[in-house]
Nucleic acid binder design. Structure first.
Lengths: 343, 343
DNA sequence: TTGTAGGCGTTATCAC
DNA sequence: GTGATAACGCCTACAA
């Protein structure tokens, strides 16, 4: 039922051979002006659409890079998507995105789809701990890929990431300078490398400062929507509360602030809160009570680096350096407050 | 350099023919148990990845539906993406998303990519007025597609949409019942059908109620980030202000509220505001001062309908009905207030 | 300047 | 149960 015309159809209509049509459609050299016109006219008339499957089959190039997400739900991913798009547009290549909705099987399927000729390379986004089979697979067949957010210390994997450990340390040091001594950490899903890194950064910074967080100064979440409410409730139940919170990311921080607020706590008077990601700019259109203090990621630079990397991997050379780490920056908002030390 | 194994490689390693390998990998019937085992083992050993380009070439089926956005920037699109993903997962098919960043040329390229064998059909998202060449193209070659948000009264185009005219009318009637008589409308980008429909709905409802909006009761925006600030400033400059605003969408409404607030106006005491899209649920993690009153779209139902439609179009039959319209629902928040009539 | 022929990796038809 | 062989639509030597 589909009436997509092929080169052969054009050739017949224009009264020339397939080769000539192909030449006109691509290289455009060594063809008579007359013939060329006829071919273009026939192509237009037939609404010719090149079959990229067939073309990819013979050239093994599609001009497309696939991007695989864990989920479309996180605003930070969306922001990065926009940045990647801009870069891609400049480079004249095209990006297609997909989300595996946290399902590993689905992720593998998409990878296969891309490996099997739908893309020249993939950008993997996220740091789920069970990503390893996917990475192994890609490495085994030497399919071009770049990872964003995950960290591979052993393997030679092209990746761009943010120094999450350092970012967490910055947060702790900042709170310390403000006079806070009892600081709690609300973790993300520790099955993701990002969450582990921020967790470790927190612990290290605390130890360096001579502070020993108690076990209940770690409030664990799974990073899902609504987990901030639960975390806040857990916090509220304690008799002795910390004076400051370093929260895995802004989403959770906002959720917690909302819940703490509801319970009558004032931010930052009763509790200082610092997040991660610095989504405040992104959400500026929604006027909030609080302008969250947060650690920001240089998304534009990261997108740029990731695109450069994938392009060079696709063209056959390992990027130099193979891994790029970016420094996050603390952005002061209005959710942290100085604290007198004689508390 | 890529070392992706083919069926031929497996055949050699397993000591059988290509045909047999193909049978094992797909149909799984009429092959000896012994042989089957050998083939699977060889496939695993070689990290076999089917070449979907080649497969698509002969079967003209990919199991993938392409989704084309105007932009990744709008939160409502993301929400819908999530819904579509859920539906697709249930149906066992895969979705890849791309955004043309408002560039028509880019959109055409993606369409060609999908038409040329990367997908079995496409879902088009948005209602830019210059989409027509894309639609024409798809119709000319009878490539399966479904449109969300655009409205085609003349053409037989499979589409799902929200009754934007009706939604706008609801908003006006609601404000009228609250006692408002001087109502202004902040438009979206009128080059998009959605914006035009809401604009028309507003005008019709006003006329029906015997209210005649002045020309400066229409504040025009292009729908871009930051346009709400400008709209609010335009509003503030006027000597005689309306008592209520019907705003094209929630983003703009939030931006305006923010700006009006800054200028000392209280919402809803000094100005009632109603938006469209009902993003409040989506942004619930960021505690705001205001819980916006808004017209909500039944995104889940729409995603469901769109997926059903594209599946039936792909399988060769026109969906019945060819167009599905959904009713938006007014969700009361805290940004609209009763107004005494003796103003 | 133009045309012929071969092959990319897969599936499908039809012999053996 | 198994294996040749012919497409699918395209590109690209190489030949005319």
């Amino acid at each position: 039922m589909l009436i997509i015309a092929s080169i052969l159809d054009i050739a017949r209509l224009a009264g020339v051979s397939k080769t000539t049509v192909s030449k006109v459609l691509n290289h455009q050299y060594g063809v008579h002006e007359e013939t060329r016109k006829k071919v273009w006219q026939a192509a237009a008339e037939l609404h010719y659409t090149p079959n990229i499957a067939a073309r990819a089959l013979v050239t093994s190039k599609t001009g497309v890079i696939g991007v695989v997400y864990d989920s479309f739900k996180s605003p930070i991913y969306n922001e990065l998507a926009g940045q990647l798009e801009s870069q891609a547009q400049k480079l004249g290549i095209h990006l297609v995105f997909c989300s595996c909705n946290q399902q590993q099987a689905s992720k593998l399927h998409y990878i296969q789809y891309f490996m099997g000729g739908a893309a020249d390379g993939v950008i993997l986004f996220g740091s789920a701990e069970d990503d390893d089979p996917v990475i192994e697979r890609l490495m085994a067949v030497k399919f071009p890929f770049v990872v964003i957010e995950h960290r591979y210390d052993q393997l030679q994997v092209p990746n761009v990431l943010v120094d999450n450990v350092g970012g967490a340390k910055q947060a702790v040091q900042y709170l310390y300078k403000l006079g806070h001594r009892h600081i709690a950490h609300v973790t993300g899903n520790l099955r993701h490398q990002v969450a582990v890194d921020r967790y470790n950064g927190f612990k290290e910074a605390m130890q360096t400062l001579g502070l020993e967080p108690a076990s209940d100064d770690f409030i664990h979440t799974d990073g899902s929507i609504g987990c901030g409410q639960l975390a806040a409730q857990a916090l509220l139940e304690r008799k002795e509360r910390p004076t400051a919170l370093f929260v895995f990311n802004d989403l959770i921080a906002y959720e917690m602030i909302d819940e703490l607020h509801r319970a009558g706590l004032r931010i930052p008077e009763d509790m200082s809160v610092i997040g991660f990601d610095h989504l405040v700019g992104l959400l500026s259109f929604k006027p909030g009570i609080h302008n969250l203090t947060s650690i920001s990621q240089p998304l534009e630079k990261m997108a740029h680096a990731a695109m450069d990397m994938i392009m060079s991997v696709v063209s056959g050379q390992m990027p130099e350096p193979i891994s790029q780490q970016f420094k996050p920056v603390l952005q002061e908002g209005g959710t942290c407050q100085k604290r007198e030390l004689h508390s």
